[in-house]
Amino acid sequence: MKVAIVTGASSGIGQGAAVAIAKRGVGVILTYGANRQGALDTVAAIEKEGGTAVALPLDVGETAGFPAFRASVVDALSGTWQRDTFDHLVNNAGFGQMSMFEDTTEELFDKFMRVLLKGPYFLTQTLLPLMADGAVVNVTSNSALSTGVEAGYSAYATMKGGLTVLTRYMAKEFSRRGIRVNAVAPGSTRTRISDDAFERFPEVIEPIEAKTAFGRVGEPEDIGMMIATLVSEESRWITAQSIEVSGGYGL
């Protein structure tokens, strides 16, 4: 059985990706930060469909913890799947926060950098020796594309843009091992991002729907199915691509 690691899968896009990947017969190691119960819910959803999943804690913004996480991955692979390698990595864990350019502090800028760019860079580096010939998917954002520029996301989008560039360089270097690397750039998606912003500020939903060609906000499953497709055999000839998954935002 193939095995995928999906970071930040206790809710939202990560949860949607973990469930969609598992439905294709792939085992899943999923990570969580503060929301352990959400991770257990994801495991339960996968097991309900007949799949296999293990939840592990991980702070993607603290690189010092990556060697211990790698050791936990080795244990999970051996204990659950009798393997010493895994096949796919989905770098999804992150956070979002609106902050106008003039109000953005160095502290917030550095946190975005640690979690959204430095974390995926060095987590992938740490786990790469354990990877078989599979696929990496980096979750970026359409805020880093010309179609999704909105005031208040300069620091967030800068890091996501960096991850888009990193995707191409990973694809170049990892191709020698037969590993494909792509990015998905979601538009506004109904997740718990920015401390449940959609729940706290429902008035933002209608303007987003008005800007989206399909007339609704994206759901985690919309993005999750695309991620599952990119790690599957169906996408074996696709690498170094950034795919916007936004329902036609800005069309």
Rank of each mutant, 00 (worst) to 15 (best):
T229Y: 02
H88A: 01
E206S: 11
V73W: 08
M226W: 02
G65F: 11
K111S: 13
G61H: 05
L117A: 09
D110V: 06
T191A: 10
A228F: 00
G247Q: 08
F109R: 15
T85C: 03
M98C: 08
S154H: 02
D133K: 13
L251C: 13
Y153S: 07
Y249F: 12
G96W: 13
A9S: 14
R168D: 05
S143H: 08
V245D: 05
R177T: 00
V6S: 11
F101C: 13
P186V: 10
A34M: 06
K23G: 00
I13S: 06
A228C: 01
A93R: 07
S235A: 15
I205S: 00
G25W: 03
I21L: 01
D75R: 09
L116H: 15
M100S: 14
G94W: 00
E49S: 04
V184M: 03
S154V: 14
T167P: 11
G50V: 07
K172M: 13
P207S: 05
G61S: 15
T52H: 08
L230Y: 01
A18P: 07
I5E: 09
P120S: 14
V43M: 05
E233P: 04
E206A: 12
T147Q: 06
G250N: 11
V54G: 00
V136H: 02
T189D: 02
V115G: 09
G65K: 09
T167N: 12
F69A: 13
S10M: 09
N91Y: 00
V137L: 09
R168P: 03
I205Y: 01
K48D: 04
Y156Q: 07
E107V: 14
N138D: 10
A22R: 01
F201K: 09
V204G: 01
R192D: 13
P186C: 06
L145G: 07
V115L: 06
V26K: 02
R200C: 06
E199S: 12
S154G: 11
L117M: 13
I13K: 05
V74A: 12
V115A: 14
L116S: 12
N182L: 02
A183L: 03
V204F: 07
K2V: 03
A155F: 09
Y249E: 10
T124C: 14
A183D: 05
L77G: 04
I29Q: 04
G33Y: 04
L117C: 12
K118E: 15
M113Q: 12
D84P: 00
E221C: 00
I193P: 04
L163T: 15
S141K: 03
G94F: 05
V74T: 11
R24Q: 08
V231M: 01
L89H: 05
V43F: 02
D75H: 05
T124A: 15
S78T: 10
S235I: 04
